[in-house]
Design a binder for these strands. Structure first.
Lengths: 142, 142
DNA sequence: TCCTGTATTAGAAGAAGTCTAACTTAGGAA
DNA sequence: TTCCTAAGTTAGACTTCTTCTAATACAGGA
């Protein structure tokens, strides 16, 4: 297993690693983690009780801008942050409880036909599968 | 051209078509329209000045639940509503100005591998291409 | 040590959407 | 007609999530 975690990647960056930023980065560990800002704050607080909400948001936004953190939008509810940016993957989202599951991207990357692109510069593709997670499917689905 | 517009589709439904609901539906016309709730309210107001925000939101939510209206989430900024639900298509979203462009879905539908699905019931797939629209690419891109 | 720019903080403010309670309306029953 | 009921509408309060602001703290270089 050679996945480089967020914290080690950040050491190689020209980015001041304060105690607060470290606390945020330490919490964003694992390949299948999709935390809300609130959850990150909660967890970071257990390492550094005085860390503020604004700092958590600032840090998350910076990490996203640096490309070190992904964002998953589940339509309902708050944004989720995904530290697993080292391999392309897609998301299964439960329409009921908003659980997210990672799925490897096996299909060939979809392409936009040249004539449909109309001058648009395409830099990325997101595939989101929607449906019901096992729990919600058992409870409400068929 | 045989695209059935939203309003005609609604006539075939068991759904009371009040003046307010009609105003909302009349505004959601066209195959490449992605309005925010605020924009729908604004336009509906020009037909029915006393229509309230709550009614616009209620109506939009009902139409979405009925499957007669699509939702596009652009991560930043408000949700957009897309009356073009009669043909599968995907979206190109500008990361800077949040413009949306429809693209026909030409690729085969991506599939989730059985072993990655893990009991998840998949009901739909959304493909979102991200990048810069022509205007923003000219201004900021390379 | 001083200086400068970056980070952090609490709390206010903003944006988007939902909820509440009162009011209106339409249609059916008596 | 008059009454009744259920559905629809309304203004405005409220929630939730995120960003902004202004004050303060801090770190590293001159």
């Amino acid at each position: 297993m050679t996945t480089t975690d967020l914290l080690s990647r950040l050491r190689g960056r020209d980015w001041r690693l304060s105690a607060q930023r470290r606390a945020v980065a330490e919490v964003l560990v694992g390949d299948h983690v999709h935390l809300t800002a609130e959850e990150v704050h909660e967890l970071a607080r257990s390492r550094l009780p005085e860390i503020s909400r604004a700092t958590v948001y600032n840090t998350l936004n910076e990490l996203v801008a640096m490309g070190e953190l992904g964002v998953v939008d589940v339509v309902d509810g708050p944004r989720r942050y995904d530290p697993y940016v080292t391999a392309h993957h897609d998301h299964l989202v439960c329409d009921r409880c908003h659980t997210i599951r990672d799925v490897p991207r096996t299909t060939a990357l979809p392409q936009v036909a040249d004539d449909a692109r109309g001058g648009f510069l395409v830099t990325g593709v997101e595939i989101t599968y929607r449906g019901l997670c096992p729990d919600c499917a058992a409870r409400y689905g068929r």
